[in-house]
Every structure is written in C-alpha cells, then in structure tokens.
Design a protein around this nucleic acid. Sequence first.
DNA 1: CTCATTGCAAATAATTTGCATGTAA
DNA 2: TTACATGCAAATTATTTGCAATGAG
Lengths: 154, 154
Amino acid sequence: MPNTEHFREMLNAYMAKKGLRSTKQRDHIVEAFFAHPDHVSIEELLARVRERDPAIGYATVYRTLKLLTESGVANERRFGDGLTRYELADDETHHDHLICMECQKIVEFEAPQIEQLQEQIAHQHGFVVRWHKHEMYGVCPDCQRKAAQKPARN
Amino acid sequence: MPNTEHFREMLNAYMAKKGLRSTKQRDHIVEAFFAHPDHVSIEELLARVRERDPAIGYATVYRTLKLLTESGVANERRFGDGLTRYELADDETHHDHLICMECQKIVEFEAPQIEQLQEQIAHQHGFVVRWHKHEMYGVCPDCQRKAAQKPARN
DNA sequence: CTCATTGCAAATAATTTGCATGTAA
DNA sequence: TTACATGCAAATTATTTGCAATGAG
C-alpha cells in the first residue's frame, strides 16, 4: 500500500467542506482503493469490498469513486477495454503507461525528462496543468514472440 | 483536408485482403471523415453524412469507423466527455492534446523531443509502439481569467 | 430530529447485434 | 448468384438516478 496520508487528508477536507458523512461502506471502499490504487475498475473494487461487506451495491461504489475523483484523490482513466479505471492522483510519483494491444498488459514507466518538456509546452500555451495521461500502445515482447512463431492468418 | 492518399491505399488494401465491398454509404462516411478527421464523434459524423444521404443509419457509421480503426486509418480516442472520438492515425504529423477541464477546449501540439524520448523508453521495455496518446488536462488561459474574476463558491 | 447515504431497480447513454432486405462483384 | 452490407429495432454494457428505508451527526 502506498503512502496515503496526504490523500486521506484531502478526502477529509473535501468531505468536511461539503458536509458529507463518513459511513462504513465508504470506509471499506476507500480502504480497498488505497490498498490497490493501480488502475482498478469498479467491478474489481466491488469484488474486493464485498469480501468484507457482501451487501454493498454497485451504485455505492460508483458514487464513492466519483467522490474520490472530485476530491482530487483519484483520477479516472480509460485505456480501451471499455471500462473506466481509477488510480491514485499521485503527482509526485507519477507513472505513465505502455499498453500491449494484443494481451492488454499494462507496464508502468516514469520519465521525468518528458514531464519537464510537458510543462514547458503547456506553459507556452498558457495552460495550468492539473494532471496528464501518457500512453503508448504497441506490442509487448511476449506477444512479439508469439506473433513470430504463429504468423498472421488473414 | 489533409493529404489522404496514403490512408486511402491502406483502406483499399485492407478491404481487398478481407474481401470487403465498397458501397456508397461507406464512401460517404469515409469522405466525411477525411474531410474533418479531427477528433470527430459518431454523432457529428452522422450529421454530416446525412446531409448527403439522409437514410444512413447509426449502425453503419459505427461499423465503418470500426473498419477504419481496424485498417489502421483511424484511431479511437476518449477524452472524458463520454464519447468516443476518432482521428486520423497520422503518425508523421502526430499531434498531442492539451484539454481544458473547465470548457472542454482541445488544443493540439507537437513535440518531437517527447516522441523521441518515448521511443527510447518503449525500446527499453522491449515494446514496439504502434501509436500513442499524450494528453494534459488543465485550465486554459480563458478559464483562468474567468476563475480569477469570479472566485469559487464552495 | 434532520438530512446525507444506501441498495435496489428502473432509467440513460453509448455501442453492438440479429435479421430481413438490398446490392456489389 | 453469392455473400457482404444496410437499416431498423432490439439487445448489451457501462453508468446514473429516483426513491423508500437507513443511519450519521
């Protein structure tokens, strides 16, 4: 589990400001998210949360993840499998993604040099950047190997 | 309209290989896409195409855009407004995006230095990159100005 | 007590699919 | 002629919402 202190504070501050309440469902969902905040889908999260509290419904998970997103704790992402996925909005240790178009594998990487260039460009356009998304879609080593063994059949 | 020769050839090759046929609906849709291949949605495309042929249905547009995607002519993109948008898979003149979180404005930019760094990183992980997505979400100059005039009310 | 929250089921929204009919090749 | 393509409507899928019941503060 990553260091979540900062995010817990953000969430508490947001909830206090909006007059929102803390419930055991929310707590479970938030804990489950913090435990594995690595591009999880609603369905995956729901499955984990139901291990502790089988009565929790879809809608509550959707609503809580929206809350996490609004409070700046999580970011919504879509990769291309039709699902919305969530990850910690962790700017400090920000990672980007290499996605295999064959097997959907996701590899994370960090590239401080790119982040720096990004900032420059945004600044040239007068933008203030809140977060970013940098994804490369291609073929991973494993799938390249498979493709070599069993060539196309079209 | 950008230079589309290369893409027409890709599409023809793909259709020939798969034994697919050329129809007037497909032609209209493909032309409409080539005319404005700048992150269009299905709905926008349908509206344009119906100016020429009012009988064309949603399904055909969806099917044709899937065909363009499979043939490598178009790429599917999702920005965050719930719609899938399409753009020319133009690697040569590839552009990335700055997206305003307030007004949804999309600004394009090019950054060859970043593209170069990307390739390096992908190579380190053994990936072959087919295309990529690089989006920065933030606040544009206009909306920064508005926010300054009319501060938050939460 | 009051009002946010929950779970369910129903409602939306975007996209896909089945099928009878039309039509390239 | 032989399938592929089309348009429609129905089906799917992901997500949102209305509402009565529940529960936090």
